[in-house]
Design a protein around this nucleic acid. Sequence first.
DNA 1: ATGAAAGCGCTAACAG
DNA 2: CTGTTAGCGCTTTCAT
Lengths: 370, 370
Amino acid sequence: MRAPGAGAHGSADVPPPGAERPAEHLPTTEGTMATTTRRRASISDVARLAQVSVGTVSNVLNRPDRVAPATRDRVLTAITELDFVPNGSARQLRAGTITTAGAIVLDVANPFFTDVARGIEDRLDEAGYTLMLASSDEDPEREARYLRLFEEHGVQGVMVVPATPDLAHLEAARARGLRVVLLDRPSPSDTLSSVAVDDRAGAAAATRHLLGLGHERLAFVNGSHSIRQCADRAAGVRAALAEGGLDPQTALVEITIPSLNADGGQTGTQQVLALNERPTAMLCVNDLTALGALRALRAADVPVPSGMAVVGYDDVAFAGELATPLTSVRQPTHQLGHHAADLLLRPDDAVEHVTFQPELVIRESTTGTG
Amino acid sequence: MRAPGAGAHGSADVPPPGAERPAEHLPTTEGTMATTTRRRASISDVARLAQVSVGTVSNVLNRPDRVAPATRDRVLTAITELDFVPNGSARQLRAGTITTAGAIVLDVANPFFTDVARGIEDRLDEAGYTLMLASSDEDPEREARYLRLFEEHGVQGVMVVPATPDLAHLEAARARGLRVVLLDRPSPSDTLSSVAVDDRAGAAAATRHLLGLGHERLAFVNGSHSIRQCADRAAGVRAALAEGGLDPQTALVEITIPSLNADGGQTGTQQVLALNERPTAMLCVNDLTALGALRALRAADVPVPSGMAVVGYDDVAFAGELATPLTSVRQPTHQLGHHAADLLLRPDDAVEHVTFQPELVIRESTTGTG
DNA sequence: ATGAAAGCGCTAACAG
DNA sequence: CTGTTAGCGCTTTCAT
């Protein structure tokens, strides 16, 4: 699907969260005069030119076989002549439905969400549907605004990563007849379909991997438990420890960092290194955090993995490209979106909750010889 | 703008170009029964319930001051009662216009484009507009299909990263009255506005930086010149060399790699290292390529930058986080999108060509002591 | 301040 | 096979 050598941009990445917009980059402007705007040709213009009725033009458009070849050609010629593009609003008003779906994610510039969006788009494309994509920026008001806008535009349905735990407005939209699929959020509701990734399982798999390698003291550099993913992953780690016969109280140190980026990882790791009974392995809440961890470990001359094993989460593009390739938990982002769209397009409109399993990608940061 | 601690996904990245979709991730499905779908309430339902005419309801919606407070309240109550959401198609059909713009990029999962999209969205949002985003996958047919779809939906205008050098269909759409802004492509046309980044200048700045550091033999690991960005960047490198009094023939070795990713960078760098008169500095067409270069240099025990200076392009998130932080050329992606949207929203609909200047971000891969 | 009615562009009966 | 016509839901004169 994805084009291989996608121009010179094939490699880019996002700026770290909270990065400043680049300073003014001195645009060069080169203006020209304005152009005139004409009224668009309508179906009756075509009918007049082709000397037929509007009904016939409509038939040529929608059921060409019902029209005599000669007439059809005449109409087609008129269409080309006038450069006629049918008015979708009118059609939609008449038909009541539209082949468009909406998606509201937290941030379109976040690769997790755009990979999901890509999955949605690919599935929608198969069905001839278009996607309207928007970012809520975690602002419930923006989310509500876009939801409303999509609904007014008559979309078939909406896939949304909720910005708040409160799902009342989504339930209401659902009751109004709009299809709604929750993204990356297990639905507590019987009326809203949902598609999510099992964060507990991902963290548990990573933990089991470390236990299998013989580690018995772990650190987890995590974000606030008010973030669902962080809480779920912490639960997964604890569950795996218990399952392995270890007491989370003694075998685990959880460090909470304020921002889930490289700086947070570096600071968190320094705290881990300062511990008197130093753990032998670290789990990081995401790969950027792990990157900061690797930086801190290098600065402290702690070899990886022999002095400290490191596991990330997300399996981002650079994870396998680092000086020490990073073991990480990969999430089926594309499938997540694909399935969400699939649910939205289901003819029966049934409610369904789907949970995908993440996959541990093992690399040298846990199994190497460093 | 961008929320700081955007959930646990704040750090993710994209898979490398050409990466396979992850294998089946064993979704867990949990179904429930379907729900009934009711007809949406219309303005006349509201009118009936509120015991007023539809015109009055419309007035409450659009010019509340024209309606007596008592009547207005009655209507408002009815609206709430019926959970009425106005039909945008009907409104648009009547009004003829719509507050939506479209954007067609090559790939929504590519961070360069999503950063641009974010800039577009932010500008559009200021004006109360919505964005419809789509990927052409560099397929001209898909591009044409989306263009048409957007036009049918009556969008104000479309911002597009053209998939082909042929701009005829875009010119035609423009002639039909649709606003069109070219993204990341300097327009050869008087009728189409455009917003682009100066690739020659970016490559030239990187080259001048290296020359200023005393390097006199450079390698450029680049992609095919059939990709506009690659050709432009090569021209920029050559121009800067000439300007510095060096003969590109002797001072520059250009290596062409098939895929602009880490593997390409690694292979290309091996070729550079095998040269008999080895360059002292390398330019890479993007950061992922530079990552591969760093990997190859490490494998060959060549210190960076003392044995080989390295410059990337794009300034992706991890560029500053590597073992050797990477000097790179940052592009004003967000501004690019912001300005494109700005052009689209201009009331005068004038044609304008804007070129943004990239910015060299200097780090240790060129100035360090390694 | 409110109501009545025309019509935006199109589709889908229904006639012929 | 083609024409006629009635709306889809809404906004907007124009009356009252």
